[in-house]
């Protein structure tokens, strides 16, 4: 049995870029992304897995990066809001959010888009009810829910027509 260690070696891909190094055990993925990698699109908010502002995808699955220890991402791929567009070309989800005004203050938007991304990866043709259920853990205090759901419906259609 190994002695307890206070750092872990971590090798992962973040938005298709490799990173390797040591991180303290208690460092959350949110801190790793925002402080170490300066990827500040992912937001810190409730810090209790309720609001969804810190949503990122780890191996395609959405998690709350505020309550996910960074060492857990070893060997995995992480997608954040910064990795959703391809260069200057916005993802259909981002286009649809802009078109429908799917954001007011915008604080929750990275989390909303990452949650929507994971939904469309799993279910390319969601109903409005399935969207509401999947995004029930992403709070928008401005109340842009209608426009968010509409944006996801439109983006889903665009994803499907591109395939």
């Amino acid at each position: 049995m190994n002695k307890p260690k206070s750092t872990c070696s971590l090798s992962l891909q973040v938005n298709d870029v490799s990173w390797s190094g040591d991180v303290p055990v208690e460092e959350t993925l949110l801190e790793f992304l925002r402080v170490r990698l300066r990827l500040t699109g992912t937001k810190r908010s409730c810090e209790s897995e309720v609001c969804g502002a810190c949503t990122v995808l780890v191996d395609g699955r959405s998690i709350s990066s505020c309550s996910y220890l960074a060492f857990e991402a070893d060997g995995k791929t992480v997608l954040t809001i910064e990795g959703v567009a391809t260069g200057d070309i916005l993802d259909p989800l981002q286009e649809a959010f802009v078109r429908n005004i799917g954001a007011q203050c915008g604080y929750c938007t990275p989390g909303q888009i990452m949650a929507a991304k994971s939904l469309l990866m799993e279910n390319p043709d969601p109903s409005r009810e399935q969207i509401a259920e999947w995004l029930s853990g992403n709070i928008c205090r401005c109340g842009a829910y209608g426009a968010i759901a509409q944006s996801i419906l439109e983006a889903a259609q665009e994803y499907r027509s591109k395939r």
């Binding site: 049995m1 190994n2 260690k5 206070s6 208690e26 801190e31 060492f71």
Partner: peptide, 11 residues
């Protein structure tokens, strides 16, 4: 921020 932690990973 979490206080410092140490980790053991039994297999």
């Amino acid at each position: 921020m979490l206080d410092s932690l140490q980790l053991v990973q039994p297999t």
